[in-house]
Design a protein around this nucleic acid. Structure first.
Lengths: 135, 135
DNA sequence: TCAACTGTACTACTGAACTAGAACTGTATT
DNA sequence: AATACAGTTCTAGTTCAGTAGTACAGTTGA
């Protein structure tokens, strides 16, 4: 009952679940080695398909956040890699928050802020002039 | 021939075109009031459907970046709003670049950086414990 | 071994996004 | 008015992500 999927938000359920788990780990609500809710019970709790939960868990394992043991359950990863990343993320979060705050103060919308970052993470080319060729 | 759509990149063609135009404006290659290539000539140039170009133009107009005049053509918007935003974007770009550089130096991948920002632009809740209820 | 859990694999339905083709309406120029 | 070129609208086909249903396989503990 703590988690409520919001289909109207446009964000896929399995992604919401993933963020939930990650956030729980970052805040310490879930600790390394701890077991997560089973796929089926959690699916019933959230009134969604078990396969949707399974997908979220699978993706989380792919990212190294959790560890899946067939027949045993899902557990929070305690690997050095995951912990190191979590630390880096924590450290970076404040920098990110500060930057976003600054941009918002300048009157930029969330969507525009998003554009800025996407543009910075990618590359660009040029555009043909008005009087382009004609076959 | 300056622009080449990359379907394999997974990014929709019309979005690529939009970024192209925006970038051209930000760098000054396209100035306020200047006319953009027509929908059909540009479509032919890029070997895509005119409708795809039209969609990009329509979205750009919705964002206030350009101005569409039925029967006349598409023109770079010279409105105060657009210019003010462009200025704010330019000013914010350096801050964004610096932040991203810092995060990369910490060993975070682009994907993880993306996660950080998305998390900061949204909200979170909690996760039910392992021993949840059973109907 | 057996029963009750666990995650896994496979198949299929649905809806939205993207692209495209063709026909339409408005503007400018002669 | 007529022509050429501009954006607009409508319809449709294709693809893919998301979700769900069902059957399968591994683990644990009595």
């Amino acid at each position: 009952m703590l988690f409520r999927p919001t289909p109207s938000s446009g964000v896929p359920i399995y992604l919401q679940l993933m963020e939930q788990v990650k956030h729980s780990i970052e805040t310490g609500a879930l600790r390394p080695g701890e077991q997560l809710p089973g796929i089926r019970p959690l699916a019933e709790e959230l009134v969604i398909n078990p396969n949707t939960v399974a997908k979220a868990y699978r993706e989380l394992e792919h990212e190294g956040v959790i560890e899946l043991r067939h027949g045993a359950g899902a557990f929070v990863s305690g690997s050095a890699r995951a912990k190191k990343e979590t630390d880096a993320m924590k450290a970076g979060l404040s920098a990110v928050a500060a930057t976003i705050e600054k941009l918002r103060a300048r009157g930029l919308s969330d969507d525009e802020i998003r554009r800025l970052f996407e543009a910075e993470l990618a590359g660009h080319a040029a555009l043909p002039k008005t009087g382009g060729h004609r076959g």
